[in-house]
């Protein structure tokens, strides 16, 4: 059996979850094994996970699991893996799986590939991102049980009308399994997190100061993009650290990355060069970023960006009517 760990988010399943279920189901098909999801904590509409290719859902309906405690999550996933004699466990490469997948790996002595970007081959060799996006490695998992954490935006969703069978799963927790207490959660509402964003608008030092970010915000709002920035911008506190993309920030792979006033240093390119389409707006013809771009505009950001935003608004108006 192939297992896939799925997180529910306010009653819905995020795109990244749909991607990993489709990915797990493809491995199941490849190796002629059934695929099942693991869902921890309160959740609803779990039958619908069948739409993306799982036949079963093991649901541990325990309110203590509504919040992450990596010890408790690990115990649940390990127990289900052992009971089902599963051969592989798939995670989405996100903040929860970074705390849980390595624990499961250590407990089961199951080799783990973090940051996979494609399906494993017949020898379970998996391609993964290394050097923060500067290269890829083909990594072989030698243990009987294999664990893969798939990068978001790396696998296309396969949807059907099938429903999954939901099985209530019991885990023998004891008090020592829950040690972390969540005091508060602070989430920016209504914005797709950078790691999952399909469209990203990013600004660099060429923006000259935080007071000029309104033109990038307008551009981002127009197309529903998430904002990002280069390292000097985050280090100067023009923008929050979580917007920093690059080798020591986030590594992202959106469909569209629009870089404004970013020269394109090697560390920055590492974090964004997996983007499917890159647009560079810069007034320096020598900016190295142009070499890594699909489309470029040589010009002053403060003139080009508002014009570009207007053109996009016009395009959107004509396409929505």
């Amino acid at each position: 059996m192939i297992l896939v760990f799925v997180e529910q988010n306010n009653g819905t399943f995020k795109k990244a979850s749909q991607e990993i279920i489709s990915y797990a189901a493809a491995i199941g098909k490849q190796t002629s094994q059934p695929t099942a999801a693991i869902v921890l904590g309160e959740a609803n509409n779990l039958e619908a996970l069948g739409n993306y290719g799982v036949q079963k859902v093991f649901h541990v309906n325990d309110t203590r699991l509504n919040q992450l405690d990596s010890k408790a999550y690990t115990k649940a996933i390990v127990q289900i893996t052992q009971e089902q004699n599963a051969g592989a466990i798939i995670f989405s490469n996100n903040s929860t799986s970074k705390a849980v997948a390595p624990r499961v790996s250590a407990k089961l002595k199951a080799g783990l590939v973090v940051g996979a970007v494609s399906l494993p081959d017949e020898n379970f060799i998996v391609k993964k991102s290394v050097f923060s996006g500067k290269a890829f490695a083909k990594m072989k998992i030698n243990s009987p049980i294999k664990i893969i954490a798939l990068n978001p935006n790396s696998y296309s969703i396969q949807k059907s009308a099938d429903n999954a069978e939901v099985i209530a799963q019991n885990i023998n927790f004891d008090n020592t399994d829950f040690t972390v207490k969540v005091q508060s959660t602070n989430k920016v509402q209504g914005i797709v997190p950078l790691s999952e964003a399909e469209l990203v608008v990013s600004g660099g030092r060429g923006m000259k100061g935080p007071e000029n970010w309104n033109i990038l915000e307008d551009l981002a709002t127009t197309i529903g993009a998430t904002l990002a920035c280069s390292r000097p911008v985050a280090d100067s506190h023009w923008r929050p650290h979580h917007e920093h993309v690059g080798q020591t920030g986030g590594t992202i792979r959106p469909n569209l990355y629009i870089a404004v006033g970013i020269s394109g240093a090697i560390q920055h390119l590492a974090g964004v060069n997996s983007s499917k389409t890159i647009v560079v707006i810069n007034k320096d013809p020598e900016a190295p970023f142009f070499k890594a771009a699909d489309y470029g505009i040589l010009g002053d950001a403060f003139e080009v960006v508002p014009k570009f935003t207007e053109a996009l608004k016009k395009y959107k108006a004509s396409h929505s009517s």
Binding site: V130, K138, I141
Partner: peptide
Amino acid sequence: PLTEIISYEMPPQK
């Protein structure tokens, strides 16, 4: 060791 790196590759050039 549970894993080994078989080979590396560079991202496709634009």
